[in-house]
Amino acid sequence: MKVGAVVLAAGGSSRLGRPKQLLVHEGRTLVRRAAEAAVAAGCEPVVVVLGAHGEAVAAELAGLPVRTVENPEWREGMGRSLRVGVRALPEVEAVLVLLCDQLRVGSAHVRALMDTFARTGSPIVASGYDGARGVPALFSRALRPELEALEADQGARKVIVRDASRVVEVPLPGGSEDVDTAADLSRLST
């Protein structure tokens, strides 16, 4: 089964005041951690969507078997980055959507999503945390048009919540803990 990954790393990190993609956690930048998790789990290809701070973020991916793509409309919202990333993937069985600021996501969780998809054949395998379903999530190739049709300000969760009957959940303890401020990184690093 061929699963391609889209790592969303185009945002401007306005709440943080500096590029969150370049924050270091456990010796690696957040963008590198996310890309490495996808690669180590067996996703191929892995596409990293760049926007704000594109050159610096791309430099953090040196040596990894990933492809970077630019989203010139990154200021418009995550939906535009998702569209750019999905369109950059060739035909694959499924698309994994991954953020770079979820510190509790590693290759084991990504692999669990892939294994659940292979075992169940469900159109969507989403991470479950805090009573909700969200990313990282895996979408069958049949749902690519839905991902590409998202409005600029919408993320993949919009596709996940559209029809609960087509979603299987894989628990992700701490999945809602993301990095939006320096205090978040400090708190989550302990």
Score class of each variant (00 low, 15 high):
residue 7 V to W: 04
residue 105 V to Y: 04
residue 180 D to F: 12
residue 175 G to A: 03
residue 66 V to H: 05
residue 29 T to L: 07
residue 113 L to M: 05
residue 167 V to Q: 04
residue 106 G to Q: 03
residue 69 V to G: 07
residue 110 V to H: 11
residue 125 V to C: 08
residue 186 S to P: 00
residue 80 R to T: 15
residue 86 V to A: 14
residue 159 V to P: 02
residue 58 A to E: 15
residue 138 L to E: 09
residue 86 V to S: 01
residue 84 V to M: 01
residue 28 R to T: 02
residue 56 A to M: 11
residue 89 L to V: 05
residue 43 C to Q: 06
residue 61 L to V: 05
residue 144 R to H: 02
residue 24 V to C: 01
residue 48 V to E: 05
residue 138 L to N: 13
residue 134 G to K: 11
residue 171 P to S: 08
residue 56 A to G: 09
residue 89 L to D: 03
residue 13 S to P: 02
residue 2 K to T: 15
residue 172 L to V: 03
residue 189 S to I: 02
residue 184 D to G: 10
residue 4 G to M: 07
residue 73 E to C: 06
residue 19 P to I: 07
residue 162 R to W: 09
residue 121 G to E: 11
residue 165 S to P: 00
residue 64 L to K: 10
residue 94 A to F: 10
residue 164 A to P: 11
residue 133 R to P: 00
residue 68 T to L: 06
residue 124 I to A: 08
residue 7 V to K: 14
residue 3 V to F: 13
residue 124 I to P: 04
residue 7 V to I: 15
residue 140 S to E: 08
residue 163 D to C: 04
residue 7 V to G: 07
residue 152 A to V: 06
residue 54 G to V: 00
residue 177 E to R: 15
residue 9 A to H: 06
residue 165 S to Y: 05
residue 121 G to K: 11
residue 120 T to V: 09
residue 113 L to E: 06
residue 18 R to I: 01
residue 12 G to S: 15
residue 46 V to N: 05
residue 155 G to R: 12
residue 71 N to Y: 00
residue 3 V to Q: 06
residue 96 L to G: 08
residue 112 A to V: 07
residue 18 R to T: 08
residue 181 T to R: 15
residue 57 V to A: 08
residue 94 A to S: 11
residue 100 C to E: 10
residue 126 A to Q: 12
residue 62 A to Q: 12
residue 103 L to R: 02
residue 9 A to G: 04
residue 21 Q to N: 03
residue 29 T to P: 03
residue 97 V to R: 07
residue 141 R to E: 14
residue 86 V to D: 01
residue 155 G to S: 13
residue 161 V to W: 13
residue 175 G to Y: 02
residue 6 V to R: 12
residue 105 V to T: 04
residue 109 H to V: 10
residue 182 A to M: 13
residue 170 V to H: 08
residue 114 M to P: 00
residue 190 T to I: 00
residue 154 Q to F: 10
residue 135 V to N: 09
residue 56 A to R: 15
residue 152 A to K: 03
residue 155 G to L: 10
residue 142 A to M: 03
residue 42 G to A: 04
residue 136 P to E: 04
residue 186 S to C: 00
residue 10 A to L: 08
residue 77 G to E: 10
residue 127 S to V: 06
residue 129 Y to L: 02
residue 175 G to W: 03
residue 91 E to V: 12
residue 170 V to L: 09
residue 30 L to G: 11
residue 89 L to R: 08
residue 85 G to E: 05
residue 26 E to L: 11
residue 36 E to C: 08
